[in-house]
């Protein structure tokens, strides 16, 4: 019953979002929504391309920052440090995931924005700032799942490789990584899902201009921010257009989740 109610809630949400969002999409045409450059809701112009590109840029940036850091961290903790240190550090890293996103955003505004403004130029509120904050936010997901999948590699693989005269680093790169590949990919995709869905922290540091950013230092608006910023005062068609934004976001996240499920299911190489 309870399990079923969770499914039915998902179903109701889906029907609701699509029900609210579809009519306006049909009315103006999907192409206009996906590829329109101008978002002027008061003039009935609902182009979401700047936000779609914004979401993808910010998410991509978050991965560029979060993935190398996260994987390096996971490798150091599993291959090059003692079990005791790992037992101590892993829960602390996981605690990072529990910090409210407003706090991340706040830290971004207070520390990161002035830093970027003073040292790199631009207004500070930018793609770069959002990417850095999101990159930090997805670290716990990537680290913790990667550690789990590296630890799940049979001990014999590591021993076999080391007995062949491979160094620890060679063993990690040539044996452990390929063997843990599916788990690591799943961790990256889950981190990506988190980054693309994050709203609050991004609103606080992104600048939120509904234009396609020309550089990493320009302000950007994501799909999620678009909804959160305008829903409070939107009415009528404008409101429906925001639901349409939700539909597109929904589809993107569904695609990512499906990929994540597929890669983590085929465990055997």
């Amino acid at each position: 019953m309870i399990a079923f109610s969770a499914v039915s809630i998902l179903l109701i949400i889906t029907i609701f979002i699509f029900g609210e969002g579809m009519p306006v999409m049909v009315k103006y045409g999907l192409r206009k929504f996906l590829f329109g450059l101008d978002w002027f809701p008061l003039e009935r112009s609902y182009g979401l391309l700047p936000m779609i590109i914004g979401s993808l840029m910010v998410t991509g940036g978050a991965l560029v920052i979060g993935v190398p850091f996260g994987l390096a961290c996971a490798v150091v903790l599993t291959e090059f440090s003692s079990k005791r240190l790992r037992r101590f550090l892993k829960p602390i890293i996981e605690l990072l995931a529990g910090i409210p996103s407003v706090v991340y955003g706040f830290i971004g505004v207070v520390i990161l924005i002035p830093f970027i403004r003073d040292h790199l130029g631009g207004p500070g509120f930018s793609v770069l700032a959002s990417s850095v904050i999101l990159g930090i936010m997805i670290l716990p997901t990537i680290i913790s799942i990667s550690i789990d999948s590296l630890e799940a590699v049979p001990r014999t693989y590591r021993e076999g490789s080391i007995a062949l005269g491979a160094t620890r680093w060679q063993t990690t790169r040539m044996v452990m990584f390929p063997a843990a590949k599916s788990g690591i990919i799943a961790s990256i995709i889950l981190g990506m899902g988190r980054a693309i869905g994050e709203t609050m922290a991004v609103i606080m540091v992104a600048g939120n201009a509904a234009t396609i950013p020309r550089s990493l230092l320009d302000p950007v608006r994501t799909l999620t921010s678009n909804i959160a910023l305008e829903l409070g005062y939107a009415a009528g068609e404008h409101r429906q257009a925001l639901f349409a934004t939700g539909v597109i976001l929904f589809v993107i996240i569904m695609i990512l989740n499906t990929i994540a499920n597929m890669t983590s299911r085929k465990r055997r190489p």
Partner: peptide, 29 residues
Amino acid sequence: RRRLGMVFATPIPLPRSIFENVAFGARMA
């Protein structure tokens, strides 16, 4: 470890091709 090659009780080929398994140690060296 390269001078004293070791074979274990349970065969543990690495999850790679036959060729890569044999070439692995040599490549590392």
